[in-house]
């Protein structure tokens, strides 16, 4: 049972790292960003390339892979997302989905469609409550917690974060102060994308790396964002760990149903809490 709990926390941590970018992008730019899954997948593939070609250690490779994705994210922001401001949500969904299709096809072109397995980069277990856990999983949980703390401080203390929070509240008022809100939202987009790439990098050794890895996790992330409330930091935090638990507990009894259960929970949440977007 404790193993399941730790597994749920790990999934929740990964989900949080991935979903927070999605949630912030929606809250700030009112754009449902399917290209988020592309950034996530690319993070994992960059990690594979760096591990294989450069032969660096895991931590260094992970850092480089995460940073290497940022120019791609910036390109997506500059050429697609920025042209969709103020447009109807439908077009944003379609356009970012198109970006995802193009990117996934590019990945298939370069790397092929066969899954690439990665081994546990630390490979050491820790004893906790008399049961041993892979250290790597505990590391992910710790990382998610510290990222949440970091983002919380960022939005509470840093001036950029404060501008973003104010912009979320009332964009026009902030703009009338002479602040370029869109540029600050773009920074948030990059932070979110970087975290998505980090999520891909961290999750890669647990699952395997394949071109469609983004699709499935994206759907779950959407569920996280909808359950937690779009644009809400704490809501996303709580709902990702709650849904991570749902996945772990369902997976314990009936493996194939694990991710579908998330959508059932989401539907139930929506029945009682209709959201207007």
């Amino acid at each position: 049972m404790i193993t399941t709990l730790v597994y749920g926390l790990t999934i929740g941590g990964i989900l949080y790292i991935i979903s927070i970018g999605l949630s912030l992008t929606f809250g700030s730019m009112r754009i449902v960003n399917f290209a988020h899954a592309l950034v996530y997948t690319m993070g994992a593939y960059f990690l594979v390339v760096i591990l294989r070609v450069l032969g660096l250690g895991f931590l260094l490779s992970a850092a480089i892979a995460t940073v290497a994705v940022l120019p791609v994210a910036a390109g997506i922001e500059r050429f697609v997302i920025r042209r969709l401001y103020g447009e109807s949500l439908d077009y944003a969904i379609i356009a970012t989905y198109a970006v995802l299709l193009i990117g996934v096809d590019l990945i298939k072109w370069v790397f092929g469609a066969t899954p690439i397995p990665l081994s546990d980069p630390i490979g050491r277990d820790v004893d906790l409550f008399g049961i041993s856990f892979p250290l790597y999983r505990l590391l992910i949980i710790a990382m998610a917690l510290s990222i949440h703390a970091g983002l919380y401080l960022f939005f509470k203390r840093a001036i950029v974060g404060k501008i973003v929070v104010a912009g979320l509240e009332d964009k026009d008022a902030v703009r009338s102060l002479g602040i370029d809100v869109d540029r600050h939202f773009a920074i948030v987009f990059l932070i979110g994308s970087g975290l998505a790439a980090l999520g891909g990098v961290l999750y890669a050794p647990i699952t395997s790396v394949h071109p469609y890895m983004g699709f499935q996790i994206l759907l779950v992330s959407f569920a996280v964002v909808i359950v937690g409330g779009m644009g809400s930091l704490r809501g996303t935090f709580l709902s990702s760990f709650a849904l991570g638990m749902v996945i772990a507990l369902t997976g314990r009894y009936w493996g194939p149903a694990a991710e579908t259960m998330v959508f059932a929970v989401m539907a139930v949440v929506l029945i009682f809490k209709p959201l207007d977007v």
Partner: peptide
């Protein structure tokens, strides 16, 4: 729901 939520 409307918009994005409907799609999702």
């Amino acid at each position: 729901t409307t918009g994005a939520a409907f799609a999702l």
